[in-house]
Nucleic acid binder design. Structure first.
Lengths: 186, 186, 186, 186
DNA sequence: CATGAATGAGACTTCATTCAT
DNA sequence: AATGAATGAAGTCTCATTCAT
């Protein structure tokens, strides 16, 4: 019995599982079983589990970029945009059962062997950092100051997601949001 | 040939390995081999791998507490203490090859099955949060305000460690330190 | 993009790989990849991997026959022909990195399931045996004696190739050549 | 349900299977199933399939050495010993269903990656060569001549086993035996 | 005739854990 | 308290082959 679109189904299935239980917590067997594919079909499309991880991170990055562009292109002041961003994060966090940031969760594993995965993580993180700098530049005239504030927002957001995940509480996100707003409204 | 202190040797060996490669990246076999113990001796002292993880986290917590107490009990203003703390983190980070926070790294795994590990993480994180609130209280009179600033420092610190690990760069720690100092010197 | 001569390219590619790493050491995937063909194109030309093996052995046999006919039809005494034959073998051996006889290497696998492959091996081996008997008949009058000597040359040659391969040294071929010459010059 | 002596059972089972169908023709699964062991028990005793192959070849070598020593230490002239040796080979060959020499069969695979296996093959082959030189030295006074004849016997024996395996006939062994006797009785 | 996607079966290896001594 | 042998389950990956287009 042959089913088409195995590649898509595999990626979608893996996306859900990797996000919920982490890259190292999910095996190929479970992925292909839930995707309804044969093992060899998997390896036809992805040369290794690591490459699937890369594809997953890439797909998450695309959705993240789409949201960020919408937010940045829309109306509102810098602090409003930042607040909206943190509120969005909080919603995601609760909906996902406090699973935090897929990139940080993957980076927390010792994946030193896979440069491809590390590269995806860096790409996403640098992109996020750039977004926060753009937001800061809306409110702060001095470029150097804007960059510093942008980086601070980036660090705040990362810490908020991580600790909310660790503690299974939302207050870190709220704290970060208030700090962000304060930095931008000064 | 009986070797004493098996329990200690196991814990020390595991501490090094868990820290460097993460809880899920190290197997029991490697631990007992490097510790020079037999398989069954391991299970005599630790009923499971998870319990060893708990013991590891507990031991890390003790060292962390000792450092924090020294810092808090010593001389210096709030912002000086905070700056010293972040400089300490940066040193650890570089020395360890950018391995970040053991608790966050462990929490990034989906270890929902082990309440003991989650508990250790929460204990340590709440304790760290309390330390930052204490530092903030040194500089800020209003209790509510001090708590908020303390939580912000906590979030900053966590994000700094996480992103420094992800990017293998130290700037997130420096950014966090400057933000912390700014918050405390206002 | 259609490429002609797919069948030939497959055979040539497989010939190189089978010779170097043995029938069981080469997979279909590698063959079609290096030949630049699609999976299904392969099975259009060869119903199975075993049939490709047969085709390979057949093609090797043809080249071998051509050489033998040239040698036999040329000038020189029986012992000169035999010596030339062994010198030829030694050259091939060194050039190929001591890969020995493709037929013996294939026969060493337990390919009991494939009568076609076994048949090719037998065909080649019996033909080689006949050649040696012909050479022996040039030097030895008595037919029964000539047959025995021919068979002995055949066995010597086979052992020489096999052990040269096992030891990665050429002395077995030289030993066999000297024994062959001695048998024919008596 | 735990059974002791897994290591022995694994080696004995593997010996039979490797001999009959070749190293590459037998999988770990079949070995452990027929040996009645768990897969992890296998890897407790043998770090890899290749290491099991080495152990197998080593065990075969020991039996082979025992036979050779008995033969060499016993009574009889050089040609009688050689004849007995070839008759022994012929018996083994028929009994085993024409499976030839385990070392040559293993060496025919492209096992370039495993130096351990290659080493076992070389050890056995060089030892066999030495035995034949010893036999030749019993009949031939000149040392250089004896060495050459010994090597010739070695090559003859190898070719005989290989071609008997290829053709599933015993005549190569008989031809080799007659050639050997002729060389020693001259 | 050519193709890329799909497949069932099996490859080798490692996991954390438990048993009998 | 300490040990080496044994284990079931799961790990990632490859095999030769066939399908639908």
């Amino acid at each position: 019995m042959k089913k088409p679109n195995a590649k898509e189904r595999i990626l979608e299935t893996a996306a859900g599982l990797f996000f919920q239980r982490g890259y190292s917590g999910v095996g190929i067997n479970e992925i292909i079983e839930k995707a309804g594919t044969a093992k060899a079909s998997f390896y036809q499309h992805y040369p290794s589990k690591e490459s699937l991880c890369e594809a997953w991170l890439k797909s998450v990055h695309e959705k993240s970029e789409a949201f960020a562009e919408t937010l940045l292109g829309g109306p509102g002041s810098a602090s409003e945009k930042a607040a909206a961003y943190f509120e969005h994060l909080e919603r995601l966090l609760v909906e996902s059962g406090y699973r935090g940031c897929p990139y940080s969760n993957t980076g927390a594993l010792s994946v030193e062997k896979s440069p491809g995965i590390c590269r995806q993580i860096r790409l996403h993180k640098e992109s996020t950092r750039r977004r926060f700098r753009q937001i800061a530049a809306l409110a702060i005239a001095d470029p150097a100051e804007a960059e510093l504030v942008g980086d601070t927002l980036f660090v705040l957001q990362s810490g908020a997601m991580g600790e909310a995940q660790n503690l299974r509480e939302t207050w870190p996100v709220e704290v970060a949001r208030r700090a962000a707003v304060a930095l931008l409204e000064r």
